[in-house]
């Protein structure tokens, strides 16, 4: 009897939580293993080299089981993804930082009651809504504003993406600004600094690693976004000539072709390789956030 109650008191909950935790790890690992298995076929089964995939812009893989071999150069899509996501980060970060500073330092009451919930609603908007609004409203607007032949451009896609990653960066940055110890602020005031000097010289540097983490999480989100980007980037298979021309990204080419290609063909394998590349990119960013967190948390707080 006593044994049973001990099980209820302690082990039942622990076992349940452990199973869930291990399950999450297993799912993540098996998705990774599956992507490696499917994505490596481009190199192992179809015999393309890494250079064929990463450096060539010639993408014309064969879409039938018996057809002749084609080419799998993904350089256009990789460049498109990097450019679009980098630009989105450049656009979103200043706004996110401003919103985070406003929320945490300038007007915490207004920020916490109105701004934060409003920003959280952004996260819940489905990406098809962003995409369709981008296609029907933003894209014609950009076209008319800059007198372009069409509005589906890298710039349009970056604007849509910036809007989508804005809440992620803002909330992480606001959290890390709020976590700056009060003693820092008191010290700064005691030394005679104004509120803006406190924010600019003390708060921002102290919250730096946290803000960096937010930016990287935002960038990861941008890389993975398929639908909204796909609808407004135009998906031209060429390197963009400037920010106001269209191109393709890794996610857009996967999204528009995966369902139409047959399992196991060269085309299908090339798409899986791109999916694997996306996974590796987000893995890289996640490791980067851990390094940043260690840098920011070390020393003062001891091992956490």
């Amino acid at each position: 009897m006593k044994h049973v109650s001990m099980f209820r008191k302690e082990y039942a909950g622990r076992v349940l939580v452990s199973i869930c935790g291990v399950l999450m790890i297993l799912i993540t690992l098996s998705i990774g293993a599956f992507l490696v298995y499917k994505g490596s076929a481009t190199f192992t089964v179809f015999g393309h080299s890494l250079g064929d995939f990463f450096l060539s812009a010639d993408f014309n893989p064969s879409d039938s089981a018996s057809g002749p071999a084609g080419t799998v150069g993904a350089a256009i899509f990789i460049a498109g993804s990097l450019l679009t996501c980098g630009l989105a980060l450049l656009i979103a970060t200043p706004f996110s930082l401003a919103a985070a500073i406003f929320m945490s330092s300038i007007s915490p009451r207004l920020g916490q009651t109105y701004l934060r919930p409003a920003i959280e609603i952004f996260v819940g908007i489905p990406s098809i809504v962003y995409g369709w609004t981008g296609l029907t409203v933003l894209s014609p607007f950009i076209r008319d504003l800059f007198h372009l032949p069409y509005g589906n451009t890298v710039f349009t896609a970056s604007l849509v993406l910036a809007l989508m990653i804005f809440p992620t960066i803002t909330s992480v940055a606001a959290d890390s600004l709020a976590a700056v110890p009060v003693s820092y602020q008191q010290a700064a005031y005691a030394l005679g600094s104004t509120r803006w000097q406190l924010i600019w010289r003390v708060m921002l540097p102290a919250a730096g690693p946290g803000i960096g983490t937010g930016m990287i999480l935002g960038l990861t989100r941008a890389f993975g976004e398929a639908l909204a980007v796909s609808m407004v980037i135009g998906k031209t298979r060429a390197f963009p000539k400037n920010l106001f021309s269209s191109t393709s990204t890794l996610t857009s080419v996967i999204a528009s072709n995966m369902g139409n290609t047959f399992d196991g063909t060269e085309y299908n394998s090339a798409l899986w390789t791109m999916a694997l590349l996306l996974l590796l990119i987000s893995l890289f960013f996640i490791i980067l956030t851990h390094l940043l967190a260690r840098q920011g948390g070390g020393g003062k707080h001891g091992p956490s």
Binding site: T28, I31, S127, L217, T220, R221, F223, G224, E225, A226, L227, T251, I254, A255, S256, M258, G259, A275, L278, L279, S282, L283, I286
Partner: peptide, 13 residues
């Protein structure tokens, strides 16, 4: 986020 980015790819199918 990792899972979200993966499902974003697979849901299109």
């Amino acid at each position: 986020l990792m899972l979200a980015s993966l499902t974003a790819c697979s849901t299109s199918g």
